[in-house]
Amino acid sequence: MEKVTDNEKIVYKDDRMIILDNSNVTDTLNTSPIKSEWFVALLCIEGESTIYINNKMYSIHKNDFLLCHPQTIFEHKITNLDFKYCGFFLSPEYVKQISLISSNSWNAILFIENNPIIALDEKESSLFLQYYNLIRSKFETESQHHLKQLIDMLLQAFIYEFHDSMEKRIKIDPPQYNSANNLFISFLDILVNSYPKQRSVSYYAEKLFVTPKYLSAICKEISGETASDLITRYVKKDIENLLKQPNKTIKEIVNELDFANLSFFGKYVKRIFGVSPKEYRENIKYYF
């Protein structure tokens, strides 16, 4: 465990979590895209900021809650001098340990991917700050014998509270613990958290000890998309991110994403975007 001084953005960090408190942004940010390996949960408590999340622009204002899964691509652009936020980064392994409520609802996963910024009301925002300040205070007091257990319980309680708030915005399917749903979530876990992503259904099927046909059938049943569709969905995000980085050559992207050669990559991009990699770059606007 490591405590960081209060004048830094990172208040506390270990291999499970990072606690952030950025109360003094002193300049305009204009950074290259970065990919988060952890879950992100941040609340804007003052000011506003413009940020790109998975290549889509969002404005963040007071009481907006940023919630993102691992492998999300961020790019900060414009931040007002009065912009303040606080929150957590949580490792995927830790979230699995503390999540008593199912986080494996496909419609909830999709909702968060499509709505990474959630506008909270004053009551919801105040509730988050209560949990945040209480958790933070535990790390600022003298060492406690059951500190880890206390933090786990507080985060679990917050997850329950947040789950209730989410149900006001979207119908969350009840937890499913059957073999089909477990297989689907295991497939998503491998797909989302791997990089570069394998594009063959058989690769994932082999890891999950099922046939490609069965895996696709389960994916279609639960999500409405085949395993191949889901693979393409996430590979497309990686390609978009890299093509929007002007410092990356097409050849470097081919190598980074583990394509066989330039020709195969060009045909793949043409199929999913309708244009060649070069044409895609010519058509997009860079925000640098």
Rank of each mutant, 00 (worst) to 15 (best):
E113L: 00
S23K: 09
S165M: 15
L242F: 13
L188F: 01
D164S: 10
I272R: 05
H146R: 04
P277N: 04
L127T: 13
V235G: 04
S125H: 03
P116L: 03
G224N: 04
Q130M: 15
E48C: 09
K248G: 05
D152W: 02
V25N: 15
M153P: 05
S59F: 10
I45T: 15
K197W: 11
P174H: 03
S126N: 14
P196A: 13
Y203C: 02
R281C: 15
K251Y: 12
I151N: 02
F88K: 01
F39K: 14
S137N: 10
D173P: 09
L43R: 00
E8K: 10
W38R: 06
N7C: 06
Y85Q: 14
G274I: 05
M57H: 04
N107E: 13
P116H: 04
T26Y: 14
F259N: 03
S200I: 02
R271P: 05
E124A: 13
Y160I: 00
K213T: 05
I34Q: 11
E256M: 10
T232L: 10
N104G: 06
F265W: 00
N104R: 09
K148W: 02
I253Y: 09
K84Y: 03
A180K: 15
V25L: 07
P92L: 06
E2Y: 11
E221N: 09
R271E: 11
Y52V: 06
E240H: 00
S194G: 01
K197E: 05
S36V: 10
V235A: 07
K168R: 05
L242P: 03
V95G: 08
L110V: 07
Y12Q: 06
V275D: 00
K267V: 03
K236I: 10
F184G: 04
K171N: 12
K35A: 09
L188D: 00
R281Y: 14
E206R: 12
H145W: 14
F209M: 10
I117R: 08
L43Q: 05
L155A: 06
F139I: 01
I253N: 01
P116M: 01
Q149E: 12
E279H: 07
I60R: 04
N63E: 09
R271W: 05
K244E: 12
K197Q: 03
Q198M: 08
K138M: 14
L67A: 12
D229H: 05
V201A: 14
K84V: 08
S143N: 10
I10C: 01
D121A: 01
I250P: 03
P174C: 06
S263W: 03
G224V: 02
D15L: 00
I117P: 01
S36E: 11
N80V: 02
I190Q: 02
I45G: 04
S91H: 12
T5A: 12
N193T: 10
F184N: 00
I34H: 02
L183A: 07
D238P: 07
N247C: 08
H146Q: 06
S49A: 15
I185S: 14
H145I: 09
L208S: 06
Y195L: 13
Q156Y: 05
A180L: 09
E282C: 13
H163A: 00
L110I: 06
S49I: 02
E8G: 01
D121W: 01
L66C: 08
E93Q: 12
N178D: 15
V275A: 02
I53M: 07
A205V: 00
